[in-house]
Nucleic acid binder design. Structure first.
Lengths: 233, 233
DNA sequence: CCCTGGAGGTGGTCGGACCACTATCGGTCA
DNA sequence: TGACCGATAGTGGTCCGACCACCTCCAGGG
């Protein structure tokens, strides 16, 4: 019979699963501090090097947080923490997958905008308007892009679904949009973008979910169709 | 002036970004083999330990793949590879976030099912039917769950959007559904689930996207509302 | 020609050493 | 008495060298 460990996979992989399991079972609470690397290594019967690799892996996944000189802590396990790595998908995708990502974004963004139309608060709406006007007041592509991102981020937040907002954040990551928009903007899409943003804003003010859904879907769909055409020929 | 490295963050973090950058820039192609850990460490001017941590991090993200005794390779960078970690979000989420995840799944699953109604091939439809009948022919919860997963997986694949399918795969990960369904099934939801699956199947056969969308949304929505009630009181 | 065995190269693991940073506790000074 | 501050122990971060387990490939024998 096997005694303690069935020796499946690398010791590091096993350590990752064990720590993940401890959190899933509730033995490690969000924000709680873990034992030191040295102690953890002893507890799991592995070397500190392997334990460090496991900790590093869970760190990039947004599950753990290492503070130099202080200790290792479990993150708050919020959607933003865990879905931060979602951005790498967008950053490393090319060709057809970019279209797929935009399709996913269109579906989620349109729904999120519809929800926002029903739930947005006056303060949030004012914030949306701030970015809308700021975006219309400049010609600097960098600044436009920044306010564009903030515009959609504020709307996503108003939808009251942090998970959805975090996914959309990854699908709109700066490097991702910069790559797609580099070409899109060159075709004089600024005016069109401003019109579409205005339409989304009108739907939010009117608290009309269906109009908001349509406006958001059309907005993302524009870019999606353009990109599809770029790849097709 | 800074010469080579501005010393931002840990050396491991820097190595992760550099390798990721090499892939993003196309200097490393999917499937290509990387230099050895020892060589990479020398190239980036860090120790092998730190380099190993960086490689491990990129491995868990699904970007790299280490083959013992052979070398380190870039994955195909397909949606499945990169979104595998999406499952940990589902596994580590509790309480209100489970509802949020189900809401996201409802949105994506309904759209994917609608797309599938228009695009599914006879072979794929046959596969769907196979899991449908197999699911109805047994009372073993384990087997039902397995065929349930396969049922939706096949439909997602028929939607012709690998990225969406990969996300849905993560949102339906075995441990996630097992946790939610443990209680749901106890309330005699088997019959209802079978009815709903039958409705989805009818819509697929009829090639009716709107009916498929509604049936899928209702199906996921059922579980979502049940879970919402569980948490609410 | 096929098969086999060994050698070299690769990732996987380990232990120890040292550095950089942080938190804490003690004493010192106003 | 109180606030300030420096020493100190403990933490993660980095590096090194060694050895092990595994794969690949090719030379040599059948």
């Amino acid at each position: 019979m096997d005694e303690t460990a069935p020796q499946k996979g690398t010791v590091t992989q096993r350590a990752i699963e064990q720590i993940k399991g401890m959190i899933a079972e509730g033995r490690l609470e969000p924000g709680q501090r873990l034992p030191t690397e040295r102690d953890l290594a002893v507890q799991l019967g592995i070397s500190r090097s392997s334990m460090r690799e496991a900790i590093r892996a869970l760190t990039v996944l947004g599950v753990l947080e290492a503070r130099h000189g202080s200790g290792i802590y479990v993150t708050q396990l919020e959607a933003g923490d865990l879905l931060e790595t979602f951005g790498v998908v967008a950053d490393l995708s090319r060709g057809p997958r970019l279209v797929e990502l935009l399709e996913v974004r269109r579906i989620l963004e349109s729904t999120a905008t519809a929800l926002a139309a029903a739930r947005i608060t006056p303060d949030q709406l004012a914030e949306v308007e701030k970015h809308l006007t700021a975006m219309n007041a400049t010609d600097d592509p960098e600044e436009i892009l920044a306010h564009d991102l903030a515009f959609h981020r504020e709307i996503a937040a108003a939808a009251c679904n942090d998970t959805m907002a975090a996914i959309l954040e990854g699908l709109s990551s700066r490097t991702f949009r910069a790559r797609v928009w580099r070409g899109y903007q060159e075709e004089g899409a600024f005016a069109r973008t401003r019109r579409e943003h205005a339409a989304i804003h009108r739907a939010l003010v009117a608290r009309d979910p269906e109009a908001a859904r349509a406006a958001a879907a059309a907005h993302v769909g524009e870019v999606e169709q353009w990109l599809r055409a770029q790849l097709g020929g």
